[in-house]
Design a protein around this nucleic acid. Sequence first.
DNA 1: GTGCGGCGTCAGGGATCCGTCAAAGGCCCC
DNA 2: GGGGCCTTTGACGGATCCCTGACGCCGCAC
Lengths: 228, 228
Amino acid sequence: MTGGNRVLVVDDDAGLARALAINLRAHGWEVTVAGTGAAGLDAAASARPDVVVLDLGLPDMPGLDVVAGIRGWSRVPIVVLSARQLGEDKVDALDAGADDYVTKPFAMNELLARLRAAVRRAQPAEADEPVVEAGELIIDLARRTVTRSGRAVRLSPTEWGLLEVLVRNRGRMVGRQQLLHDVWGPSYSSETNYLRVYSAQLRRKLEADPAHPRHILTHPGAGYRFEV
Amino acid sequence: MTGGNRVLVVDDDAGLARALAINLRAHGWEVTVAGTGAAGLDAAASARPDVVVLDLGLPDMPGLDVVAGIRGWSRVPIVVLSARQLGEDKVDALDAGADDYVTKPFAMNELLARLRAAVRRAQPAEADEPVVEAGELIIDLARRTVTRSGRAVRLSPTEWGLLEVLVRNRGRMVGRQQLLHDVWGPSYSSETNYLRVYSAQLRRKLEADPAHPRHILTHPGAGYRFEV
DNA sequence: GTGCGGCGTCAGGGATCCGTCAAAGGCCCC
DNA sequence: GGGGCCTTTGACGGATCCCTGACGCCGCAC
């Protein structure tokens, strides 16, 4: 995981804050907790979190002022927690500069997903090395394009998904279950037919001699490997 | 270092200002000093600093008025110095538009670090090229204008929102969910109809041949990409 | 030689997705 | 109240894609 993993939780409800902290830490986040808006502004400046979880119902100051205060000097993503069912203050929060909102009660998985999404959206400033060269192939992971000997290759969504997982793990064998999980989803752990069909389609489009592939190699009974 | 190295110090304490200037120059900064709020506003306009260090305890005018005065026409980062330990006027300063806050007494290294951070944060906002050329298109992100072969193109707010997200991520595919989130809001993660309608409208206005677009490309099942 | 399991190949039908169009509804300004 | 622009919604055709099942090939064990 290249992205950040520091989260600031601003919530005056000590019990909820503690539960959040435990759950977030269990999922790999480094958690800072602030119990008031003022402390939240402090912590946002000093702890430099990658994302902020902000409960709007703070005792010392309006939650929207906290949003505005942080937005005055930082573009860190802010996910707002709100008890209100009606959407009025959601709109206000978004106008003030929040990135997303979750209404209480909420499922922990939903919050985790929204945090990941918020951090991912904030990422694109820092790009790793997204272009891979493999012989006559050039694979641009950011652009989502493949060229073979200078000519663009059209890939279907699933073909690209499979290629992307293989290329991101280039030089290493990727197990069949991981491939199926990453490309098709969590519940496709045994449909190895898919891998046969799509590895063949990729080879037909990418390999000079599909019968003797040089990039997409098979590990019988185990998985596949992409070699540059 | 691409960023700037000019700092304006606004402080009525001549001794402290001199010590700051010596230290800052020793670390490569080009320093301007102003002893009053009025002189500070003047210098901020004439010296065009990359960052301002502002002591709140000025004799001639409230420090926050200096912050507001500068913010009226410039987004230069402002780091506030204050003797107060309590955080109340910290919030006020951040609300007024200050970027960071240091309480006296402070370690020189801390101030230096915060100045570097403030300049670094300010970079992407102003330093990125706000005018993008893509073939016969000229897109000015700051002025929110588009011209095609020299003729202005009128875009609706939503059309512009979509184009802006794509152009800011030019050369990278932007996922459908991110587009919907950034243009329509957090709760529109599945309304892919919008993308179909508005990408078509943009193409009709921007592409020479909307049927074979050269700038606004589709990645089926995934998202869209803007190519210069 | 024979059986067996795993992999590669192929083709077709149902499902999905995109681009397109048109019309209804909302909003603001006149 | 009326008109114009904008957003939203729904429906449709066409192209593409995904899944499925069957078959052939190869290597291995017996």
